[in-house]
Computed example of a mutant assay.
Amino acid sequence: MQQSSVPMAGRSSSVTWECDCLAHRFGNAADNGSRQPRYPTDMTDREWTAVRPLLPVPGWLRGRGGRPEAYCHRAVLDAIRYLVDNGIKWRAIPADFPPWDRVYAFFRRWRDHGLVREFHDRLRARARLMVGRDAEPSAGVIDSQSVKADAVVGADSRGFDGGKLVNGRKRHVVVDTLGLLLGVDVTAADTGDRTAARVLLKQVGDAPVRLALVWADGGYTGSLVEHCLAAFALVLAIVKRSDDMRGFVVLPKRWIVERFFAHLMRTRRLARDFERRTTSAEAMIYWSMTLLMTRRLAPTRPQPA
């Protein structure tokens, strides 16, 4: 396998000219060659080594039909990472990546078949094991974030959040105690937190994740507490802000999900909701978290003791 050392925006990496992805080994990607990593969002060889075994196997390799893919999986993943992190349009993907319509087709296929969540969940399990935690968490934190919506967002999935004075959508999330995503539900901004929580906690409860405890803020009080206990055998613990608190105060456990939202806002595609479909908005959040986790699994700098 030919290799060459190429500088990458403040970090050096060994560039693999002949990729070992499934599209190159068993598909038609060899006809299109390989690209040279050059952007900060491109996976290093260490990241690719960690990611490659966790990628879902394409349907055409499982005998489910379809044409073998003609573009390198690593290049397509790097293209999606570039788009999510830099907030560009699909048609503005740089020319050294595969054609934008092929990248979008890959994104759409992974979105519609749940492959992006499957990939994300495998990365999360590996990231938890790396720091000495169980692969699946038993506790989490739930919260929501309202964001402005772009003009492409239709009235059927847009609303006005009177509390935050935001016209757009709301992201309802559950994260574990490391701040890694367990589940997300994107709705119109006027959807109540307790209403969305019933759907989101059922979604998380149907997954392999078996939560026993979830922390929440005062917006989740009321009948939801009893519903969680009866329907999901889940304790919903309310962390309230004291009436005598003034200014910014770090609240136990709730700061974890606030840090998660801060990460999303640093991902430029998520600074505003640009997606026509809520499923695309949810997929973008999963892709954003894959960037975070691959960097944790294969850090480019020595970690402090």
Rank of each mutant, 00 (worst) to 15 (best):
D134P: 07
D143W: 00
R91N: 14
P53W: 11
A155E: 14
A125V: 06
A135L: 09
A127F: 10
H113P: 07
F119I: 05
V116R: 03
C72M: 10
D156T: 13
L55M: 12
I88P: 05
R102N: 15
R46P: 05
L178A: 14
W48K: 02
D143N: 04
H172Y: 01
V173C: 10
V103H: 05
Y104H: 14
E118Y: 08
K164T: 07
D190E: 12
V76R: 03
I142K: 00
L181N: 03
I88E: 06
E69Q: 13
L165E: 08
A105I: 06
R74K: 14
G192T: 06
L54M: 14
P99E: 15
G65I: 05
G140H: 04
W60G: 03
L77W: 08
H113C: 12
G65N: 09
L180N: 05
A189V: 03
S146Y: 01
M130Q: 15
Q145W: 05
D185Q: 15
D78P: 09
Y104A: 08
G192P: 02
A149T: 06
P68C: 10
P94D: 12
R81E: 04
R171S: 02
A70E: 12
G192I: 04
H73K: 07
G140V: 03
R122D: 09
P98A: 10
K89T: 15
G162P: 13
F160I: 09
V76F: 04
G162C: 12
R64A: 14
N86P: 08
K89A: 15
R74G: 02
L83G: 04
G114N: 04
F160L: 11
R124F: 08
V186M: 04
F119K: 03
A151D: 14
A125P: 03
M130D: 15
T49W: 08
N86E: 15
R74Y: 02
G87T: 09
V103Q: 05
A70W: 08
V103T: 15
V116S: 09
P56D: 13
F107C: 09
V103K: 01
L83A: 13
H120F: 06
L165H: 15
R171N: 06
S146L: 00
R194F: 03
I142S: 01
R128T: 09
A188C: 13
P99H: 14
A139M: 12
T177Y: 00
A188G: 15
V174H: 00
R81Y: 07
V141M: 03
T187R: 05
R117L: 09
I93D: 02
G162S: 15
R74L: 06
W110F: 12
G66K: 10
I80C: 07
V173H: 01
R111A: 10
D143Y: 01
I142N: 01
S146I: 02
G179W: 01
R158T: 01
D96M: 12
A135W: 04
R124L: 11
I142P: 00
V186S: 01
D112A: 11
W60I: 08
G179S: 13
P58E: 10
V173T: 03
R194Y: 02
G192S: 13
A50W: 00
W48L: 05
E47G: 04
D143C: 07
G65E: 12
I93G: 02
R46E: 13
G66D: 12
V152D: 12
G179H: 08
P56F: 09
R126E: 11
F119G: 05
V174W: 00
L123S: 10
H120R: 04
